[in-house]
Design a protein around this nucleic acid. Structure first.
Lengths: 115, 115
DNA sequence: ATTTAATATCGTAATATTGCGATGATATAT
DNA sequence: ATATATCATCGCAATATTACGATATTAAAT
């Protein structure tokens, strides 16, 4: 008896809530387009939106999808301004990401027993 | 005339080499199993390997696959010790990851024009 | 009221990822 | 020499991700 319905999905129930959340944060940033979007928003300070399509060379629907994912994570927020939407970094969430990653990497690595 | 062969693949040629590399680093850590593997290696100091199967509750082949991905990124290295393989953190690469993420997050976020 | 501009959503296609069992390779133990 | 233990690889199944065009949706402009 083989259970195939398990395949393909991450078995999140095996891992701590903390690790699942941290992995999800890494995942949001694990695509160059999303990094480029964040970088553009940071550089421009003002939160222009449709410019990203010209800037990155991806289709409008693709950019919109990436923006949705970034927004779902909380790292950016969008304000409706007339017929356009102005996106900007959510500084609180940005700092949360930053310190979560920092906490992970500040652990002492002492691995000399075999390598 | 529609070109479908483009679909599904990340268009890395649109982005800077730096962003592609940074995204790839985030991607390595974007799975709870790989975070758990790293955590276990760090906690145990000594670099045991097959224990991960018991520890995480994933199949041996699945663990092996995650280890391969971690190793390919350079963040861990493996030493053959008899019939087992001892994995440990590569401290240099670990620091590279750490400082790359730190550099990204130390940017000034000044977004008040609209949000 | 109709057009235009900006964005979101839907449907679809293709690749990527995750996971497992089975099998293969290699080194120690018997 | 054979068995056992450890790990890697292969093949497959299922879901996830990435990308696009087409089509809403909404608000401003004419």
């Amino acid at each position: 008896m083989i259970y195939y319905e398990i395949m393909g999905i991450t078995k999140s129930e095996l891992f701590s809530e903390k690790k699942n959340r941290l992995a999800a944060m890494f995942k949001v940033l694990a695509h160059p387009a999303r990094l480029a979007i964040l970088q553009y928003i940071i550089n421009q300070k003002a939160c222009i939106c449709n410019d990203l399509v010209d800037e990155l060379g991806l289709a409008q629907s693709t950019i919109s999808q990436h923006l949705k994912e970034l927004k779902a994570s909380g790292i950016i927020k969008g304000n409706i301004e007339g017929k356009s939407v102005c996106y900007c970094i959510d500084e609180t969430v940005w700092e949360e990401f930053s310190s979560s990653f920092e906490d992970f990497f500040k652990q002492d690595i002492l691995s000399d027993k075999c390598c």
